[in-house]
């Protein structure tokens, strides 16, 4: 069993937990993910690692309360245990040789983008970060990002905090004003990652995106997480989750993510009733 040693609500719809899993904590690197089950008969869900503390043996996860399993997970408290927690899975984010980078996080994707920004900064790279949220209430990790970034742009859809607009706006401004990033890392919803790729395209700046498809085993067995990358079938669990943004078929990935929409809505409804909770959106 894997104990939840700490639980913090980051915003009304996003929760952070530290899970006691020493072997995972010893190994996990930025860009890798874990798979957990919230209950004994639960679904296996992948969550990208948001940080870890090898000394304390804990792994940090930050998740959006979006459906049945994340509602069940959020219903657990510090001191409770998770039946299953396995990792670290997937390949770490490649940051070798990068001197100047832009890290863009969208919504809860910022939780995964932060370790990448930190890793880059710790390797001596200069990092500009852009984080985007729906509104002021949804803003997370601002202090953490500013600590490892030369510039930080916080964007909100409605302008209630930071600047109004999408994460692509400051990226475009920087690129237009002549900033030459060695690479841009985009982590967030598919539409956001796709938009970052399109923003970078005219400037020929490489873009790494972090894919989060539906998975079951996460170890290279079921093939459910397959994507089309550069015209070839690739598996996010063993070949990724990071891929070259110019090569990913985002439209297909988006379609595949919606394969169980009806089931997910029903599960969500069931759990909302069960836990007498609304989903914040």
């Amino acid at each position: 069993m894997f104990e939840i040693v700490n639980k913090v609500r980051l915003n009304p719809g996003v929760t952070m937990m530290d899970i006691y899993a020493p072997p995972v904590a010893r190994k996990a690197q930025a860009g890798q993910f874990i798979i957990l089950r919230a209950e004994a008969d639960g679904e296996r869900i992948p969550l990208t690692v948001a940080g870890c503390d090898p000394q304390r043996g804990t792994v940090k996860i930050i998740f959006q309360i979006a459906g049945g399993t994340t509602l069940r997970l959020d219903n657990k408290n510090a001191g409770d245990c998770l039946p299953d927690f396995v990792g670290p899975l997937g390949c770490p984010t490649e940051t070798d040789g990068i001197k100047k980078a832009c890290v863009a996080g969208g919504g809860v994707g910022c939780a995964i983008a932060l370790p990448v920004a930190r890793k880059l900064a710790s390797c001596g790279a200069q990092v500009d970060s852009v984080t985007g949220f729906r509104n002021k209430d949804a803003v997370i990790l601002e202090r953490e990002f500013s600590a490892c970034s030369k510039k930080l742009f916080v964007m909100t859809d409605d302008g209630s905090y930071g600047k109004k607009g999408l994460v692509t706006a400051p990226i475009k401004e920087e690129l237009e004003s002549g900033t030459r990033y060695d690479r841009i890392f985009a982590i967030g919803p598919l539409v956001m990652m796709k938009a970052v790729v399109e923003t970078a395209r005219p400037y020929g700046i490489p873009v790494t995106v972090s894919m989060n498809p539906i998975m079951i085993d996460g170890t290279g067995m079921c093939g459910g997480c397959r994507l089309t990358v550069g015209g070839k079938t690739r598996f996010a669990c063993v070949d990724g989750p990071d891929f070259d943004g110019y090569e990913v078929d985002f439209d297909e990935a988006a379609a595949r993510l919606s394969a169980y929409r009806d089931f997910e809505l029903a599960e969500r409804e069931k759990c909302c009733n069960l836990f007498k909770k609304e989903i914040y959106r």
Binding site: P23, V24, K27, D84, F85, V86, G87, P88, L89, T219
Partner: peptide, 9 residues
């Protein structure tokens, strides 16, 4: 269980 050789160890 929950231990992937090649990853966890």
């Amino acid at each position: 269980t929950n231990t992937v050789i090649g990853k966890t160890f």
